[in-house]
Write a protein that binds this DNA or RNA. Structure first.
Length: 471
RNA sequence: GCUCCCUUCGUCUAGUGGUCUAGGACGCUGGCCUCUCACGCCGGUAACAGGGGUUCGAACCCCCUAGGGAGUACCA
């Protein structure tokens, strides 16, 4: 059998991490088995669907690298086909027209609730001849009894009693088809073999299976993946911060990190944490997906992101960093080779945004030295080492990391001071903070001119302090 | 309310009747390394929701309870 999976979002918002993971699982399943991955846009809700959302979803998929083999198919372009199927169902008596008022339906619901029963449509119009030219909806005639058994690839066997199901609307009074009909027609027409989707669809599954059968079609296999919860264990929602996939890009995450994080959310392969795309494809089995919902944990995502920052191709990361530097108002071409910046900083940053921020000093003079760092390191005792370093650096011609390293060591030796007594004041003077890459690399990246200028500023500050103390 | 689903460290998970005094990862934490911050390395912290069965033996099988979640639309 040819494996065909699909991702079928409704374009009513951006691509969020839950949808992205579902898409990833579907994509992996297809890739794993040499199958085809189809993208279908479920836009039958004319009120809520927007082209902006379609674009946002496409953009998110592209960024993650989840390329589809067929599509995107739009359901709004298939209305004729749905009508054809509904007509067929009507003709065979497997569906019927209904003109029950919304008031009547509402009353039915309330009565059922009072009787502590599940609200269901009572089949009032099943045997009535509703005038096709008058306003009406079309309902699917659900079997009255029997069991519908779903053999879910993740949950196992789930049984539903047809008595719990009612005759659902498959065509609205405005003539548009509804979800449960369109999925079945599409999954059938597109020969989808495996439906991998969120578990909020479990309850729809028996209805859809019944429609498949009414159509004389074999239903696909189903796999319902549990949802993703927010950091606090509550349901993930727009109010829970960055849930849009594209926002993760803005916040400096790498797509490979997000993908790796997402694949491990609910799925595992022994104790392995790091998965390249190739490994995911090779090892992913839908049966290994957990049944329980899982909470999103940004801390672990950050760890993975740093892992990929550290492991990735520096040139590739440099390109991405360039964008984030730009956002800080920095012209990346106004400093050293970006690859050198990446290599110096990638063990110190968890995101590209952080990397850009801690690299700011390489390009721009700072407003003021961090007070705590200044207080601790720019004291009178630091004046002599700083002056010596200033003189040595001013005379320095070879500005390579190695040469600078020897220079700092030499000054420390001459003054009979430990490295820290020389490097720390120097660092604070040049960086404006007490943290940076190795002092040699730091000096190298900043460049001679800026280094000297900043050391002069720091020396000035020390003299001011000495004067103030002397009074 | 009704139907369906879920339940191992704070979080992600391993585990499919004995090898579990429950393993790994993130986080937190002690130490080492060290010019700072990181990285790295070594160590620590912390869980089988509760109660009944079945069995020589249960995290694993069954039942109940509790707690979460989904659906119950002319949304998808």
């Amino acid at each position: 059998m040819t494996i065909r999976t699909r991702f079928a979002p409704s374009p009513t918002g951006y691509l969020h991490v839950g949808g992205a993971r579902t898409a990833l699982f579907s994509w992996l399943y297809a890739r794993r088995h040499g199958g085809t991955f189809v993208l279908r846009i479920e836009d039958t809700d004319l009120e809520r669907s927007t082209t902006e959302s379609v674009n946002a979803i496409l953009e998110g998929m592209t960024w993650l690298g989840l390329e589809y083999d067929e599509g995107p198919f739009y359901q709004t372009r298939r209305f004729d086909r749905y009508d054809e199927v509904i007509g067929e169902l009507l003709e065979k008596g497997l569906a019927y027209r209904c003109d029950c008022s919304r008031e009547r339906i509402e009353r039915l619901r309330e009565e059922a609730m009072q009787r502590r029963e599940k609200p269901r449509y009572d089949g009032h119009c099943r045997h009535r001849q509703v005038d096709p030219d008058k306003p009406h909806v079309v309902r699917f005639r659900n079997p009255d009894e029997g069991l519908v058994v779903v053999d879910d690839m993740i949950r196992g066997r789930i049984a539903f009693d047809n008595r719990e199901l009612d005759d659902l609307i498959i065509r609205r009074s405005d003539g548009s088809p509804t979800y449960n009909l369109t999925v079945v027609v599409d999954d059938s027409d597109m020969a989808i073999s495996h439906v991998i989707r969120g578990d909020d669809h479990i309850n729809n599954t028996p209805r859809q299976i019944n429609i498949f059968r009414a159509l004389g079609k074999e239903p696909p296999r189903f796999a319902h993946v549990p949802m993703i919860l927010g950091e606090d264990g509550a349901r993930l929602s727009k109010r829970h911060g960055a849930v849009s996939v594209m926002q993760y890009r803005e916040e400096g995450f790498l797509p490979e990190a997000l993908l790796n994080y997402l694949v491990r959310l609910g799925w595992s392969h022994g104790d392995q944490e790091i998965f390249s795309l190739e490994e995911m494809i090779q090892l992913f089995e839908i049966e290994d997906v957990n049944k329980a919902p899982s909470s999103f944990n940004t801390e672990k995502l950050l760890w993975l992101n740093q892992h990929y920052l550290k492991q990735g191709d520096p040139l590739h990361i440099a390109h991405l960093l360039s964008y984030h530097l730009g956002r800080l108002g920095i012209d990346p071409t106004s400093g050293p080779d970006l690859v050198e910046v990446v290599e110096a900083q990638r063990e110190r940053a968890r995101t590209l945004v952080e990397m850009a921020e801690i690299s700011r000093f390489i390009y721009q003079d700072f407003e003021q030295i961090e007070p705590a760092a200044a207080k601790k390191h720019l004291r009178p005792a630091a004046r002599q080492p700083l002056e010596r370093m200033r003189a040595a650096l001013a005379a320095q011609e070879d500005w390579s990391v190695e040469a600078l390293h020897r220079l700092v060591e030499q000054v420390a030796e001459e003054l009979e001071l430990k490295m820290g007594k020389v490097a720390q004041p120097l660092r604070v003077a040049v960086v404006g903070r007490a943290a940076s890459p190795g002092i040699d690399v730091t000096l190298h990246l900043v460049g001679q001119e800026k280094c000297l200028r900043r050391i002069d500023r720091a020396l000035e500050l020390i003299r001011e302090r000495e004067a103030a103390a002397g009074q």
